[in-house]
Design a protein around this nucleic acid. Structure first.
Lengths: 143, 143
DNA sequence: TTCCTTATTGCAAGTTTTTGCAATAACACA
DNA sequence: TGTGTTATTGCAAAAACTTGCAATAAGGAA
């Protein structure tokens, strides 16, 4: 729930500017605690900034993601959602009921290293969504 | 490069039908060898089927993905691409130059098991895209 | 081969996302 | 505190994607 004001120096240091629009969007993301679609962010942020446009929301979310302040993720089919970037984690989502849980990055660490040495790539992003069946839906599948 | 005719029984068995549209789209996917955006699939398949519409392409790709004949993946920012589902693999993409390579599923197998026992989930889908820096781009970063 | 059921398509209208460009407003510096 | 540079926004139009519905056609059964 950190106040978005703390992000200002981070942006300035890179030659970018803090604006009411960015402030509102960061505020929405950090106070929602979960991931939001661009449309949801727009709906909430619009109440704080007179005349905010959808185009700005899309551009800002992409901008924040590029600069490490927001984390984009692919939940479900084909659409990006965003959340505030405050801790490294991944998502695990149930294909059947849509239930979702977070996964600690530490669980993937060994695999990341294996992947790096096998490929020569240096893995920068640590956010991945895995799909499967949650325990409850596994039970009903058995029936 | 398998001919899409072999898919007919797979669809029939599930109560679905083979149509010229599906045939063309499967043909396009299996002969391209790489992943294609819906727009690219439409452009190619249109030449084979008179009057094919974009709506049909979107619906068909989603349908094929649901039935395991195509594999959707999130390459880059926010848009789905599709490829024929003939071998299990993942993608590794360079954030800097866009270069891309395939990763064998076997590399992730141990991690998948760890994830399953930690979460109770049963992982069904196995396609993930990882992002990082390719060897070449790592060198130029050092400069 | 013909008929019937219903999965699938095309159409057209809607929603979401992207883009170019001119106007605006952060903020570094004097 | 005022001024200039240029990052950022809003606007408007375009592109990409989705959806409901009536017409079509795949393919099982007679």
């Amino acid at each position: 729930m950190s106040c978005s004001q703390e992000y200002t120096p981070q942006l300035r240091a890179r030659g970018y500017r803090m604006t009411p629009q960015r402030h509102a969007i960061l505020h929405v993301l950090s106070h929602s605690g979960k991931h939001l679609s661009p449309g949801e962010v727009y709906a909430k942020a619009q109440k704080q900034v007179e005349g905010l446009t959808e185009a700005t929301v899309y551009r800002t979310l992409e901008f924040l993601a590029e600069n490490g302040l927001a984390r984009p993720s692919h939940i479900g089919s084909g659409h990006l959602v965003y959340e505030i970037a405050n801790h490294e984690h991944h998502h695990l989502k149930c294909r059947n009921c849509g239930d979702e849980m977070e996964v600690e990055h530490s669980l993937l660490k060994t695999m990341y290293q294996k992947l790096e040495s096998a490929s020569g790539y240096q893995l920068t992003d640590s956010h991945v969504t895995f799909f499967g069946l949650c325990p409850d839906c596994q039970k009903s599948e058995d029936v």
